[in-house]
Design a protein around this nucleic acid. Sequence first.
RNA 1: GGGCGAUUAGCUCAGUUGGCUAGAGCGUCUCGUUUACACCGAGGAUGUCGGGGGUUCGAGUCCCUCAUCGCCCACCA
Length: 815
Amino acid sequence: MDVKFYGVQFISDNATIFISMKSAELPKNYNPSDYESAIFDLWQKNSAFEPNSGVKNKNKKPFSIIMPPPNANGSLHAGHLMYVVEDIATRFARMQGRPTLWLPGTDHAGIETQFVYEQLLAKKNLTRHDLGQDKFYKEVDAFVRGQQHNIVSSFQSMGFSADWDKLKFTLDDDITETVFDTFKRLHDDGLIYRGNRIVNWDPVTQSAYADIEVTHIEREDELYYLDYGTLVIATTRPETIFADVAIAVNPADDRYKDLVGGLATIPLVDRGIPVIADDHVEFDFGTGALKVTPGHDRNDYEIGLRHDLPQITVIDFAGNMINVPEDYAGLSVEEARKKVVTALEAAGKLIKREPIVHSVAIQDRSKAVIEPLITEQWFMRVTELNKPVIEAIERDEVKFYPKRFKKIALEWLKNEHDWCISRQIWWGIRIPVFYKTSTDSTKKDYIVAVDEKEAIEYYGAGNYRAETDTFDTWFSSGQWPYATLLATDDFDQFYPTSTMATARDILHKWVTRMIMFGIYKTGKVPFENVYLWGMVTDEKGQKLSKSKGNYEDPMKITAEYGTDALRLALSIGITPGNDGKISQEKIKGYRNFCNKTWNVSRYILANTSDMKTLKTPELLSSADHWMALALNEAIVSVTKDIENYRYSEAGQATYSLLWDKLADQYIEYSKQSTNPEMLAYCLDIVLRLLHPFAPFVTEAIWQQLPWKESILITEEWPNVILKPDVAASKNFELEIIEVLSARQKQQDSVQLAKLNKEIKAKKNLLLLIEAKLANQSFVENAPASLVEGERSKLKQTQNELTDLEVAVENIKVSE
RNA sequence: GGGCGAUUAGCUCAGUUGGCUAGAGCGUCUCGUUUACACCGAGGAUGUCGGGGGUUCGAGUCCCUCAUCGCCCACCA
């Protein structure tokens, strides 16, 4: 570990340069692709990403970020680009000399990945059922593990300085062990139960889902008014009349007062059902009478429980009709609806139909319409568990950036219902439960057991069956912070972690649950700060996506403009919690900035080539004082801004320091009177400040410094050292003004000369045209169009002359 | 129905606890082939900070209200 080497082999088109020899001449323009991969290798070879790399003071507070695990099977997409802020935070902390860990990992992403793989299978005319659960799982596992390097190498090419050797995967044994352990504890504590409840069922993926995985979309359907004998009801789902168990009206509704307690009749099947009164029913909707179908509607299910009504199921897991008259059995919901409506119409039971816009629940990923069904699922009682979470957030033990998400998180936590954690998805962590199949009445119906051995011990061979359900992906990823740190032996040093930075749309799904699991399992919040970002969109605010054609592969962008340019575009002008717009123009602007950085360095290096050590410069001229003041101010403000998650402002301050102050003012001045030590010092500071944002170009330059043999990534964050004199600095400002006005005068005189020359030319032209028009024979004999042309030319020239004279006046006035 | 955010130059956006004579980048216009950079330099133009009202010595910033756009949550027979 003591042996460090800094020689980087930079690959250029025609030559290979060993930078350890400090190449004498740098190319005029910075070409990122010549350096980036070599720089990343340099960091890796020097173990720069390891937590204690560059740590000068072990007593400094450790800094850690757990990377939100991207889908192992995916590729870099717009959402991942914002991970740049995690890298900025990590690099900053590392340079501050804190033990720094950015722990990377990937997610098996249950339904996402299963969906992708099923589509691959579909191309071979196969479904997962052709393979069976075990074989399917193995195939997906092999597929995912084969793909995993894609995302990792994309992240690395973004320059992400995570500790890649520690990469974790949500299905790693040491992770699942922790997940099992949590499940068992929760179960023992009575916080997990198995129940037969109405859930969001997706007939396409054939699994239950939590409420939060369901989206509501507006759709136009028809509202049917049906004759139920004693009254008329309105429904959008006539196919479910076979599962009706009651008609409900509002208890205060006078229209139906006398009917409550009596019967209504389901048309087509002529079954009598009671009329009941329930507050849930609204007066104004439809007829004010509601058919109650506990088996297939969330609210009806609740009404059913309140009134002790039976539950009838007429739709199966695939979304087809069952337990219905023969005519409809086996039909899909849509087919059945049409057929039932036709039959109702024929029977004279369809009173009227009208269009209605209402919202329909669909599954986030499959987009299938959710069919509420009553099934056996595993649930977690979150109300109790959320209480300490709410307290912790209220006490700011977890701080939100931006602040407004604190309120949003609290609101959600206070209203969360029991969480359905079981999925009938095959790609995921199997719930560690075994069921009794024997009739032995001394044995429990099921046991929670991590492996089969325990089940054999308890039930005896052949007397049990394993649970086939898997965990909701968020059940395992909710435990990601401590599960990963335990697996890498970093828990003691780095838990609780410093910052969780992630997309704002998974605040509920993920962030709040990590806090919940963290507090339950470790007694501590899993992170002290939460930083949330929005979507990355194009300049019009449209979500970037391949199908919309506004998404270019980031790797193509970085190849053309450089990774640093993309990183800067993602960190400047984008504020926490809000959508970030990027465009090619913006990226190009930062490419130019990187090149500016390169050339500033080139200039300074050319003026300091004989410098072997970097000394604290003496401030000689007023310009030195002015520049020192600018440096000091930048150090203070950039540090403060990064500490407070104001990356945009930190980046902008650095940008302005380098371009406006150093390049445009100080260097321009230094061409008259040079202070090489000060120039070298400026470069040193600027590179350090810029490094978290633009790590590649700054490191590439750092490798060229004749006075330094180190890697910038683990160099120290700058402190204020210089003591400039404010009065001297003011003098320089006055000097600048003088220089500028002199320059302006010079420019004006050039301009004036030019204008006067033009005026003279115009005047001559004018004379010529006037002479032509004064010629009687020309006016009388030439074609009319030609004469007209000369006249308009005359007018135009007169106008132009006036404009020029006005311009001259303006310059004179401004002086 | 409940909540949150946005509205600032032609475009994209900053603007922290009220102190602003309101900024940046891009674009635009004028000038410039100065040996760090044309992926450049110098300079200019462009704003009743969405409308209305209020608090204050002072409001882009705080309060009320209206409008438009976007997002989240709940619900919709």
